[in-house]
Amino acid sequence: MTVKDIVLPLPEDLYVRLEQTARATKQSLTDMLVRAVRAGSPPDWSQAPAAFQADLAALDRLDDDALWRIVRSQRSEADAARLQELLEKNADDALTAGEHLELDAQVAEADRFMLCKAHAAGLLQWRGHAVPPFERP
């Protein structure tokens, strides 16, 4: 991992609090600062499956209204019903080869949809909004 050095002026009270915490936890001040910056950073999408990273990264550039639309969005009833149907047929080992492909695509799309909703919610929270928990369909 590449490391970049920065100069960061901190208010004295924050510096003292971080320095005391670093000492108490037997960490370096640098490690404590990195930890604090990580904790206060926007949600990280880099650990998501590679197939979804571009979609999640794109959310970082959206304004709050667009993120709220994503958070409030729902999959269509037809999509949800078809996914349920395919899952039930799969449980009974009754899928055709074409339905296997369709199931894989439906599951990937459902995963993408939920990851985008969750990331959008995380970004809104990081930006200071109160985001209610998702309701189950």
Rank of each mutant, 00 (worst) to 15 (best):
A110D: 14
I70G: 12
L67W: 03
E99T: 01
S73V: 05
E88C: 06
R75N: 08
E99D: 10
D64T: 07
D92H: 14
L101H: 01
A120W: 01
D93G: 08
A80G: 12
L123N: 06
H119G: 03
F52Q: 08
D65S: 07
L62T: 02
Q74C: 07
L124R: 07
K89N: 05
A78Y: 02
E102G: 00
A58V: 03
L67D: 00
L59W: 00
A94T: 08
D104M: 13
L124N: 04
D64R: 15
L124Y: 08
F113T: 03
H119F: 09
I70M: 11
D55T: 06
Q74V: 03
L87P: 03
Q53W: 01
F113Q: 04
K89T: 02
D44S: 14
R69L: 10
L101Q: 14
S46F: 01
D44C: 09
L123S: 05
A120K: 08
W45G: 05
R112V: 06
L95I: 00
E85G: 00
D92C: 07
S76Q: 07
C116T: 14
D44L: 07
L101P: 00
E85P: 00
D65R: 13
L62M: 01
V71D: 08
E102A: 07
Q125N: 01
R75C: 10
R127Y: 02
R112L: 02
E102K: 13
A57Y: 04
A97G: 10
L95G: 12
R112K: 11
A80S: 14
A121K: 05
Q125P: 05
A66D: 12
D93S: 13
G122K: 08
E77F: 08
G98V: 03
A66L: 03
P49C: 13
F113R: 09
F113G: 01
S46M: 11
A94L: 11
S46V: 11
Q53E: 12
A108I: 13
A105K: 13
L103N: 05
L115G: 01
S46A: 13
M114V: 09
L56C: 02
C116G: 07
L115R: 15
L103I: 03
A57C: 03
R72L: 14
T96L: 05
L124F: 11
D55P: 11
R61N: 07
A48C: 09
Q84D: 04
L103H: 11
A66V: 00
D55I: 02
D79F: 11
L95H: 08
H100A: 08
L124C: 05
S73F: 12
